[in-house]
Design a protein around this nucleic acid. Structure first.
Lengths: 226, 226
DNA sequence: GGAATCCATAAAGGTTCCGTAAAGACCGCA
DNA sequence: TGCGGTCTTTACGGAACCTTTATGGATTCC
């Protein structure tokens, strides 16, 4: 499992901090929002695998935010509520939450529910090992093998290769690749791509001059061939 | 506090899924294997507190896997069998299983047997002596021996080494290590790790410059190698 | 054919990460 | 109060990685 993206929505800075450290330690990539409004903006701009949503917030509350998010997305939603009243549970689930946890809760329990909610998602296409000829890409351990021999890739190199490999045989535009690996702020720094593609090829291709996996699509971008 | 690690071995995906969700909800950390072969590999690489082992599998069957595991480990083993024949029961226990459950079984019953099996282990997670090459870690006395000679570790040093050693061959992220040893409030003080890892290496490695047990995983964290 | 664009490759800073040493802070204990 | 051990914090050099620039070859378009 390449780290799932989790959005933490809570108005208390302390809680956000604890969540961030704990979830980061578990290998998730964590984002946070301080209010329902912020959460809605974030959801509109990015795709998250799971959203941790506090019920009790000023402004747009958790329930309303939940309904709004659910109406436009199938992200897993776990709600945090102080009261354990039955009606709250019903309200949360009615609003479209997948699960809910009542404060105070232990971290192990929360983590378990997060794992459970993530598992429910449609086919974690990420955790499968990708094979292509003598090449073997393992997203969970972030390792790559060429003909059984392990090859060491740097973080960026691996991200690049993985993104290409998860869309095999499909040409991917320069800009799209850049944004996927470097983030949304990188629009036209295509030089990065050139140098890193070159680097990756030197490590995984027998003959970097005539690559068999990382193919360049002239005037378009690159593609991964199986 | 650390939830018990359970390995589920079954060739049917459905059963693995149900087990996973149920056991996870109970607070266990669940791993699975699809065959006896996979189970043996997993056991070689990690330490589990309990193994749920289906008898009837293609390839290496449950009984054979059980014998193999038992020969090198004292993990609790609970077998799952379809038939309730007395001979099967005997065969299972002879192979070294601690208990067995006949399908179809109710989840409450299975959970009860799991709890019982875990209870039977003399505080297994903590008291088992960990060996790796010339290294010997004794959690109950909190002592470490290198080639028979006892080495003195400070409390923090020992905690660090122990946590790494209880998850052998698995890279552990910086943040996770920090939180496990220093507590949940330590998010990014990675300097501590550096100094203590260095300290531990000087004490347990013949050549600290080329460590054989405490291995650094660049850009990720550290791992303990057996 | 010539100019422009794109691509592969190499290589120079700048930054981050890791190992190592060492000084200061804290604590228990005589 | 002083002492020894442990933990925290800072500092620094080397290595690995990322960014950036430069150069030459290939392809396209006019």
């Amino acid at each position: 499992m390449t780290s799932a993206k989790i959005l933490v929505v809570d108005d208390e800075p302390q809680i956000r901090r604890i969540m961030r450290t704990t979830l980061t330690a578990e290998g998730y990539s964590v984002y946070d929002a301080r209010s329902g409004e912020e959460a809605l903006v974030a959801v509109r701009e990015q795709r998250f695998d799971l959203i941790l949503l506090d019920v009790n917030m000023p402004g747009i509350g958790g329930l309303e935010a939940c309904r709004s998010i659910r109406s436009s997305s199938d992200t897993a939603i776990v709600m945090l509520t102080v009261r354990s009243a039955e009606e709250d549970k019903v309200a949360a689930l009615d609003a479209g939450a997948d699960d809910y946890v009542t404060k105070p809760f232990g971290m192990p329990e929360l983590l378990a529910r997060i794992r459970a909610a993530l598992r429910r998602l449609p086919v974690s296409a990420d955790s499968a090992v990708i094979r292509a000829g003598d090449l073997e890409i393992n997203p969970s351990t972030r390792t790559v093998k060429v003909g059984g021999r392990e090859v060491r890739l740097t973080p960026k190199e691996f991200d690049l290769l993985q993104f290409l490999a998860t869309n095999p045989n499909v040409p991917i535009a320069h800009v799209k690749l850049l944004q996927a690996v470097w983030g949304p702020d990188y629009g036209d720094e295509v030089e990065y791509l050139r140098t890193f593609i070159n680097q990756v090829r030197k490590k995984i291709e027998k003959d970097p001059a005539h690559p068999r996996h990382v193919i360049t699509e002239p005037w378009v971008g690159y593609k991964f061939q199986v």
